[in-house]
Nucleic acid binder design. Structure first.
Lengths: 167, 167
DNA sequence: TTAAACTTTCAATAATTATTGAAAATATGT
DNA sequence: ACATATTTTCAATAATTATTGAAAGTTTAA
């Protein structure tokens, strides 16, 4: 395979993957591009390479910065801004896990806690509701704690976790 | 909070959550409804409760069956089909993790392996590409193995895993 | 074998979400 | 302070995705 083809494939794979960790296609593609770039890129360069508009680039870069996985970089003597991705895959994974937990899992836990605490009126529908949402609440809290635990480990968390688990 | 309100809240929370584990709103809402129902529901009942069309209900129920988390149930003496959710949260989580691994993670690993194996031509762009995609390949493989390991444990996998990890 | 009960399919349409582009805002060098 | 380079915002529009509903298909009971 040619480098150009491989690069294209990486960007598009990342793009469709992105939609499933909660970010849109353009955002994921920008991230992919920065992740494999040896040097920070300007907005102009990103627009050109991905064939997207200025507005689109601007908004999605902001999104990536909010996720904490892309940084603004200034080059001495240059007026415009440059952008760089977090390059360390472990740090990247940790950051994404942290944000997803904060944005999605924790609010869900709050709702589950609230709704599973209603008073039962004794009906089957009511009893089942309480039982099931309580179980889901518990599972989600445990999964979130597990995620936090795995991801807070300093370096190479996945590898280390696997080693521990196989003991 | 009233039961009715709590139920509504559960269905809508699950609905928006759904979009992030890769299934659409209607599908997630149908699942939520079945998950808290004390008895299997008919397609008619699902349509009514969620105010969706017959076609929509039919297609999304099929989707849920493909995910392996909803089953068809026949009641003796009844002509129509009924539907029931997997009720055990651990089994539910296991099934979802298994499917996501198969549908999303494994194909990604394949692509990463392929593109990270290109020959370097010595350019900085090329070297960086290979280095970064190799690192990503490794991380994804490890994360997938970890997921498989956690989820293959018989019962209460999250709890058990946490206990192990805190040792 | 027929008719009624029920389910699936899919083209048309509605709803949602992403993208553009140009005007407004902001930052920088002289 | 000004002119210019650069970035941001956001209403309009395009692209995508979900939903409907009615026709076609299937199953079952008699």
């Amino acid at each position: 395979m040619e480098f150009k083809e491989a690069k294209q494939k990486f960007i598009s794979t990342w793009g469709s993957l992105g939609t499933l960790w909660g970010i849109n296609k353009a955002m994921a593609q920008i991230h992919a591009l920065l992740f494999i770039a040896p040097e920070p890129l300007s907005m102009e360069e990103i627009m050109e390479e991905l064939e997207i508009s200025r507005g689109n680039a601007s908004m999605n870069l902001r999104g990536l910065i909010d996720w904490g996985i892309v940084y603004k970089v200034t080059k001495p003597g240059e007026r415009k801004e440059f952008f760089a991705s977090e390059k360390d895959v472990n740090e990247l994974a940790r950051q994404i896990a942290k944000e997803r937990s904060r944005r999605e899992i924790e609010p869900t836990i709050k709702v589950l806690k609230e709704i599973s605490s209603i008073e039962s009126n004794g009906s089957a529908a009511n009893e089942e509701f309480i039982k099931q949402t309580k179980a889901m609440h518990e599972l989600t809290e445990n999964a979130n704690a597990l995620l936090g635990r795995i991801v807070s480990t300093e370096q190479n968390w996945v590898t280390k976790t696997i080693i521990k688990l196989f003991k």
